[in-house]
Each structure stands twice: as C-alpha cells, then as structure tokens.
Simulated scan of single mutants.
Amino acid sequence: MIDSKVGILDILQAKKEGRKLVMVTAYDYPFGSMADEAGVDMVLVGDSLAMVVLGLNSTVQVTLEMIIHHIKAVRRGCKRPLVVGDMPFMSYNTGIRDAIINAGRLMKEGGCDAIKLEGGVDFALVVEAIVKAGIPVQGHIGLTPQTAGALGGFKMQGKDAAAARKIIDDAKALEAAGAFSIVVEAVPAPLGRLIAGSVAVPVIGIGAGVDVDGQVLVTHDMVGLFDRFVPKFVKQYTNIRPTIIEAIRTYGDEVRSSAFPTLKYSFGMSDEAQTELRRSLANQDGQVNG
C-alpha cells in the first residue's frame, strides 16, 4: 500500500514491481472516506451509480452533471487514493473537442485525478487527444456497460479467438494512445492474463481472472447493498442490507410502542425551569381569556 497521495506514476510503478492494485467504487462522502481508510489505491466514481445509487435501469441515463456531483462528494472524504471519474455515455462519443471539454469539467468541477472512458481501437484518437490536453485517462474494454446492448447484453466477452484478439488489440491501442491503465471487464481468465502480458500499463480486472495487475469491484455489490442481482465475478465480503433493514424495522417497532426515545436519548429540563414555564403559560392563558 502506498502511504502518501497516490499518483499516476505510482500506478505505473506498481506493475513494474509486481504489486497488485486495489480499486473500488464510491459515490458519496461516507464510502469515499471508508475506501480511503481501508487503504485502496484507486477509487472510481463510476456510472454504475445509475443502478446501485439512483435506481435507474442502465448507465446510459447518467449525465455529466450527476458524475460531477458525486465526484465532489467522494473527493471530500477520499484524500489518499487516486480518484477516477467516469465519462458518461455520449460525453465523449460526439467528437474530440466535446470529449476534451467534458473530461476537463470532471477534473476542474469535480476534482478527480483522472477520467475513465469505454472503448478501444475506435476511441484511441479520443484518448490520445485527452491525454495530450493534460488529463490522465484510464481505458475500459471487454464488456463495456454503456454499449452492452450492442454486445448482446451483460455477457462475457472474448470467448473465441477472433473476439479475444480484438480485445488485445483494443488494449494495445489504448496503451499507444497514452492510457495509464486499462479496466478489462468480463473476459475469460486466460484472456485476462494475455492482455496483462501484452501491455506495459496496469490492467485492472473485473471478472478477468487473477493474473492481471489489480482488481476493481462495485462496492455496493461486494458489501451486499445492491439487491437486484449479483454478477458472477462479484464476491460478497459481507451482506449489510438485511442488517440495515432489520435496524430500521426495530426502530419502527420502538417508535410505535414508545420504547424510543428513552431518557438516554432525550434532553432534560430542570424542575425550576419547568415550573416557571408552566406559570408563564398559565399567566398568558389568563390574559387571553380575560
């Protein structure tokens, strides 16, 4: 674990040293501060907030303003890790100029350290232009949620040799364009190993096997806060949703039975003050009635 503020050079050096990188998502101050305290290397303010925080059906509904809002909250609690802001759907697809402007907004208004965008060979020129503008870029290939519909849904990618080779080509194109790291999602473990071996920049897996340079998971998945589904590649390290529901249910029972709040959770008032208050109210009532 890096003790000081994590920078791009630290991420690149980790691969050279054979040190695995740890990345999680965060969308607000509490999770940002907890990720910081837990000692992760990178925190992604991802467009996955669409489903796990906002209750939307897909990531394509996330706007640039939403991402900026959540980056600000995470940044307040996340001081040491490298904070990566996700470029939402159509914020970089309409041209290089738009991509640079929108990536700049994530950095300037949100306060992230780098941005992430989906796509390989087809978006290499966009990545190159953003990097040349002075903005660090993390790539994302394999299963790309923003365009999952065109890929046949949320399914494993790179099953056959041709599809696998295309993903390797995507990784090489992103490296050549200047990406400092690449997220690879939902590919066979042997392909994950080949991708990591084909580029000099760190490859961060999410459902890409163990032989990559690091891992990223959606925090709400790994702690059991998101209940719609659990992806195959997610290990739930705890399941706090039932605990929270039970706490709220118990609170409700105690409110209805007047068991809460007890004196321990209430503010007191001296007998003298109470007597004076009653006298004052009685005098007031007498004046009104008179």
Rank of each mutant, 00 (worst) to 15 (best):
G32R: 12
G32K: 12
G32T: 05
G32L: 13
S33W: 00
S33Q: 15
S33G: 03
M34A: 11
A35I: 01
A35C: 08
A35P: 01
A35G: 04
E37S: 10
E37F: 04
E37D: 02
E37R: 04
A38R: 00
A38M: 02
G39P: 12
V40Q: 01
V40W: 04
V40I: 12
V40R: 00
V40G: 00
V40N: 01
D41V: 06
D41R: 07
D41E: 11
M42P: 00
M42K: 04
V43N: 00
L44E: 03
L44Q: 02
L44Y: 08
L44G: 10
L44H: 05
G46T: 04
G46E: 00
G46P: 04
D47Q: 06
D47N: 07
D47G: 08
S48R: 14
S48N: 07
L49W: 05
L49V: 12
L49F: 08
A50K: 15
A50Q: 15
A50E: 14
M51K: 15
M51P: 09
M51I: 14
M51Q: 11
M51H: 11
V52W: 02
L54A: 07
L56F: 14
L56A: 12
S58H: 12
S58D: 15
S58K: 11
T59M: 02
T59I: 09
V60D: 02
V60N: 13
Q61L: 12
V62W: 08
V62M: 14
T63M: 01
T63P: 07
T63F: 06
L64E: 09
L64D: 14
L64F: 09
E65K: 11
E65W: 01
E65L: 00
M66H: 15
M66W: 11
I67Y: 13
I68T: 05
I68N: 06
H69G: 02
H69Y: 14
H70L: 04
H70G: 10
H70W: 00
H70E: 11
H70R: 07
I71L: 06
I71E: 08
I71N: 10
